[in-house]
Design a protein around this nucleic acid. Sequence first.
DNA 1: CGCGTAGGCTACGCGCCAGTAGGTTACGCG
DNA 2: CGCGTAACCTACTGGCGCGTAGCCTACGCG
Lengths: 214, 214
Amino acid sequence: MTEEVQRARRLPRAVRERQILDAAVQVFSRYGYHTASMDEISEVAGVSKPMIYTYLGSKEDLFAKCIRREATRLLEAIQDGVKPELPPDMQLWHGLRSFYRFVADFRESWTVLHRQALTVGGEFAAEITAMRTRAIELVAALVVNAGARKGLAEQAEFSGEGLSAALVGAAESLADWALDHPDVSDGVLASWLMNLVWLGFNDLVEGDVWKPTA
Amino acid sequence: MTEEVQRARRLPRAVRERQILDAAVQVFSRYGYHTASMDEISEVAGVSKPMIYTYLGSKEDLFAKCIRREATRLLEAIQDGVKPELPPDMQLWHGLRSFYRFVADFRESWTVLHRQALTVGGEFAAEITAMRTRAIELVAALVVNAGARKGLAEQAEFSGEGLSAALVGAAESLADWALDHPDVSDGVLASWLMNLVWLGFNDLVEGDVWKPTA
DNA sequence: CGCGTAGGCTACGCGCCAGTAGGTTACGCG
DNA sequence: CGCGTAACCTACTGGCGCGTAGCCTACGCG
């Protein structure tokens, strides 16, 4: 009689929770919130369904916990990369590099944050938006700060918040593009954005404004 | 005996289809594909549910038809605005203005295209991506064309496709921002982007590349 | 004035899936 | 060695919502 291979058994709660969250991120990122089924998550996690409910609560709870964990990871990855003592452009550059490195390393995390999070209407779609807003405000602080140094104030051609929204959007969109082009390094991606944005911004600061021609 | 107010009756098929599509866009944009219910759409349309199925098919069919109608509207709005005989920067500027005007005028159309369309995995998420890719390639053509004039070729600092992806993302993101700031005109929004992108791009063309400092 | 057809509805079936009831086995500790 | 408790499962239910069967009614046309 061959002894049965033991299916990993009697693990402490903390370990199981991590397994479940990992599986959930994977399945949510692949199928989206609504299409993903708790049965499949439990299967991928190698755990039965009631475990999920006793440990992590309802489907919505589970999703929220995924989002929060991945968001925290992302923000920490960026903050670890940026060096506050450097000039604004280098801060931005390092932040962007860390961001693209994270996206490349944790595709599923990024997908679940960027693509799937908005699809669950209501309560914590707001939470995601809040996180995104924080990112925008952070960038805005950089930009406005750099602008203020040169005496760029409330002109019609300038809105720190608006420009930051555009910049963040550009970064996100480029991240999606990069998922299909894994050969492009994070340094190159960050450089593209810097060339686009920082140079243009510098011109603005110098008063070199683009105007429509007749 | 007061005569009953007649509930709009016996309308021709084409009219009903429009009513249904209008209602569907509204409901889908508010709740998203999965959360939206056919019952609510029928209610908003002022029509019973079987009508939707006989006229427009399944829920997925209905959503696809919404997407296609709104996408066509958007692309036409942009193409009507742009004048091909103008120089590249002015073409881009007019295209952007038309885009922001559209978003302001048809918020629901934009929402359903941008936010909700990606949430339905599979078949025609691809369709949306295709449309977006077309937009990116269009912009890329503009950019590459303008770059080629100045002899900017395959440098590490340059990728028409990548930059275009970033630009489109910036435009979309700014559109979302603008939804919360209705007082900002389409001309101003377009100018911001031109200042960011075109000036930076011009610098690139001139060989003025941003490089990280030690 | 009858009959075909296009416009329209109420009311139901049925599958899928989030969530649960209730029971079983291993481990820790006195 | 027995008792509490924490880990873990199988097997069910209940509801929500897509899609439809079947029926009614106004209008046009000979």
